[in-house]
């Protein structure tokens, strides 16, 4: 098989705080090949967004990033100068953010902002950038693209703005695209359209894609690989098939129980929930972070947690060899 386009090993992100250091991301890793979609799943505060910002080199300055390996297309991202990172960002790796309403600059037209993304990395004239912008707006399903160029963000709806953001990320045909909860702020019907669009474009342009989400329904539809994050760790990862058919980690199984399945979940039936709250990540962590909420926790969970994996690459962190109850076919629609 080909080399991975993105290789992340033992990534940690520390946030210095008044009361000590917050270990927001604690030694996570994954590999991603061209054309693959990795979904990072987890609840708010599990470190998903920080992980994507860390790959882009967009973490706030006071945060500390470390990794034993952080490579994009064989480029060591940890030893790139700011200038070199700028040449990669928006060019070979691009990002789509969660908040389409506020992610576009209110002072400039859509056209200006799309063209800027192209002109920053290509020594060509505006005409070419403009043609590219029109083509991409068409590609992301915006009608009358030509006339949209002179509009301002406040004249567009949330769904349209997110389409513009996607077009902007694609201006330089990136090899890696990171979408950080791209549909969270949108209506449910628009969510489905945007996700389908992203999945289609990813396939068509053969990009690697990281989709950060807390919506498992989304994951089931478009993921090749899934990484489940909890309290700054990847507690389980594997192919989408493995995660949904044979979830190993109690947290993953808990998440899957929370999803209603059309036709199977009866009206009024209690949906699953995971009791308790996410532990504080300030100070030193020991043992399994999930043990306080886990229904199969034991005393041993407070000490080191082994990492287990199958030959196919399905990996999880739990003291239980194989809690392997099947998921009873609970694949969300």
């Amino acid at each position: 098989m080909s080399d991975p386009i993105l290789s992340v090993h033992d990534l940690t992100i520390d946030i210095p705080m008044g009361q000590g250091t917050m270990h927001a991301v604690r030694g996570i890793g994954f590999d991603l090949k061209r054309g693959e979609t990795l979904c990072i799943v987890g609840e708010s505060g599990s470190g998903k967004s920080l992980t994507s910002l860390a790959i882009m080199g967009l973490l706030p300055k006071n945060l500390k990033r470390a990794a034993s390996r952080l490579e994009f297309a064989r480029i060591d991202l940890q030893h790139q100068k700011p200038r070199q990172m700028r040449d990669l960002r928006g060019n070979r790796m691009a990002m789509i953010f969660q908040e389409p309403m506020t992610s576009l600059n209110p002072a400039y037209t859509i056209g200006d902002q799309l063209e800027e993304a192209y002109l920053l990395h290509n020594k060509t004239g505006r005409a070419e950038a403009r043609a590219r912008a029109v083509a991409l707006l068409g590609k992301v399903g915006i009608t009358a693209a030509e006339s949209r160029l002179s509009q301002y963000p406040h004249q567009l709806s949330g769904g349209l703005r997110q389409r513009v953001m996607i077009a902007m990320a694609l201006m330089c045909a990136p090899e890696l695209i990171i979408a950080d909860e791209p549909t969270t702020a949108l209506d449910v019907t628009i969510q489905a359209q945007i996700l389908r669009l992203l999945a289609d474009l990813q396939r068509e342009m053969n990009m690697a894609m990281i989709l950060v989400t807390h919506d498992l329904g989304v994951v089931a539809r478009i993921a090749d690989k899934v990484a489940v994050m909890y309290a700054g760790e990847v507690v389980e990862q594997g192919t989408a098939q493995e995660i949904f058919r044979h979830p190993r980690h109690p947290y993953t199984r808990g998440l899957l129980r929370c999803i209603p399945v059309p036709g199977k979940t009866k009206p009024g039936e209690h949906l699953g929930s995971i009791p308790g709250i996410v532990p504080s990540l300030i100070g030193r962590m020991e043992g399994c972070a999930f043990r306080t909420r886990c229904d199969v926790a034991e005393a041993a969970c407070a000490s080191a947690v082994p990492e287990r994996h199958t030959e196919t690459g399905h990996a999880w962190r739990c003291i239980h060899e194989n809690e392997g109850h099947e998921n009873e076919g609970r694949v969300p629609a």
Binding site: L58, R86, G90, F97, T102, N105, A117, L120
Partner: peptide
């Protein structure tokens, strides 16, 4: 602190 500043940085714009 606005989101569109982060967008500009994500595009590869200089400081």
């Amino acid at each position: 602190g606005a989101d569109y500043i982060r967008t500009a940085r994500a595009k590869g714009a200089s400081e």
